[in-house]
Design a protein around this nucleic acid. Structure first.
Lengths: 149, 149
DNA sequence: TTCGATGCAAAGCCTTTGCATCCTG
DNA sequence: CAGGATGCAAAGGCTTTGCATCGAA
């Protein structure tokens, strides 16, 4: 089983974007390539800041439009992991997140088997589509920097 | 074991607010009473809208200041359950949430035993403080209104 | 008087929208 | 030429901040 080489996921996303009738413009290609292999869960602002140097005409509207298109195609997911800006996640497989209380960094957490198996105490008639877990705490970097508690 | 009568939780929160050195002003009392027995997870705007008729001079700054003070005292928790406005939760015991994809309503979900017991795939050195689960799906009301899928 | 709390308004983020312009087919 | 996509700017929600005023100890 080989590792996924750079670009694979971006190419897959671009192909699916194209299949769904959207044009593969330079802006969209740049956004997809920036996001596809990024597990840091960037905000729209962060993506814009990274892309602006190479594409000086990029606009926020295009970033948001593209992220919205990608989300509609189920190629990324918009996540509310903390108050503030929405974060975008190229990993659409079921998984969870560890969020640092101090620096706000986000890491993926592999899902456990059976983690979605209980609906006992859900509201009557609630149909579950997905279960998200957020592990809140302190990342190693912040613990090292700050003394740990 | 008796049910908690109306006002108990509000009184407890007010007492603890006072103990932590904050003055129990009419505005703070009104905000606490509005939130203490409310499980709908209101936004700051919603609280303001409910309080404004009875307290015409209430300002947003006071609502946010008071919510921030309550959160610092661990009497409420600010939650990011979906993109958009932060929701405030008077239930600070460990529990989870069911969030409707359509109407955005939020219901509490009782925690399961052992639901926080595994940290196997967490990032190295990440110290877990709390585990939140969000059940996403469709509430009964929306399924009834819309046809169910 | 002193110090915290309030209310108002302005400013700051984050995001969406309207519209003119630009490509591409 | 027709349609979608872009870029810009304005608007709109959510939240914070600055500051003058108010009120209780």
């Amino acid at each position: 089983m080989r590792m996924r080489p750079e670009g694979d996921r971006a190419d897959l996303m671009l192909a699916r974007l194209g299949e769904s009738g959207l044009k593969l413009t330079p802006q969209r290609i740049a956004i997809v390539r920036e996001l596809a292999d990024d597990s840091s869960h960037p905000t729209a602002q962060e993506l814009f800041d990274r892309l602006a140097p190479a594409m000086p005409t990029m606009s926020f509207a295009t970033v948001y439009n593209t992220l919205d298109a990608l989300a509609r195609c189920n190629l990324i997911e918009a996540r509310a992991l903390a108050p503030g800006a929405t974060r975008f996640d190229p990993n659409v497989e079921p998984h969870h997140h560890a969020v640092c209380d101090r620096c706000g960094c986000v890491a993926d957490v592999a899902p456990r088997p059976r983690s979605t198996s209980v609906d006992a105490s859900l509201p009557d008639g609630f149909a579950v589509r997905a279960v998200e877990q957020i592990f809140r705490g302190t990342c190693q970097r912040c613990r090292d920097a700050d003394g740990g508690d």
